[in-house]
Amino acid sequence: MTIDTGAWPDGLAVAQVRVARPTDKLDEVVAFYRDHLGLRELYRFNGHAGYDGVMLGLPGTDYHLEFTSHTDGSPCAAPTDDNLLVLYFTGEVHMYDAVERLAAAGHEPVPAENPYWTDNGALTFADPDGWRVVLVPRPVF
């Protein structure tokens, strides 16, 4: 297996990656990812064409999540238990720092749909909308 860890391919000069989804529980979702999991709040907006939103991410602004809520409602139940955000940590100690923050806020691990995650020491949590976040103790590559 060959793994290319270099630059983006020619013709795909991507500068940032954002994963965005709506929610009717914006404050709860932001608290889960920012306060309990530990992502940084990068930007917040209110009243933009009926939308409020928050962008959360890793250090820098290259990779981030955006959560939005619309004044007319933004229902967003997770389609399946295997729609995942997977975060790979640099070791078990760092992963368990996040697990302890989540536990202190009342979030308990949920069973992983795919046994691969449990077999590799990962823990899965559901955010307030039911979307799953998998915490893995070490990188794959």
Rank of each mutant, 00 (worst) to 15 (best):
M1G: 15
D4T: 15
G6L: 12
A7V: 14
D10M: 09
D10P: 10
L12N: 13
L12R: 13
L12A: 15
A13P: 06
Q16S: 02
A20W: 00
D24S: 09
D24L: 04
E28Y: 04
V29Q: 02
F32Y: 02
F32N: 01
R34D: 11
H36Y: 13
L37T: 08
L37M: 13
R40N: 11
L42F: 08
N46L: 12
N46W: 07
H48K: 12
H48S: 12
G50K: 08
G53E: 01
V54P: 01
M55T: 05
G57Q: 00
L58A: 06
P59N: 05
P59K: 03
T61M: 04
L65H: 00
E66M: 04
S69N: 14
S69C: 14
S69W: 11
G73R: 09
S74N: 02
S74D: 03
S74Q: 01
P75W: 05
A77C: 05
A77Y: 03
T80F: 05
T80E: 08
D81E: 15
N83G: 07
L85T: 11
T90M: 12
G91R: 10
V93F: 07
M95D: 08
Y96P: 06
A103W: 06
A103E: 12
A105F: 04
P109I: 05
P111H: 06
N114A: 06
P115S: 10
T118P: 07
T118H: 06
D119N: 11
N120G: 08
G121P: 01
G121T: 04
A122V: 08
L123H: 07
D127V: 00
R132A: 05
V134W: 03
V136S: 10
P137N: 11
P139T: 15
V140S: 13
V140C: 10
F141C: 13
F141T: 14
F141G: 15
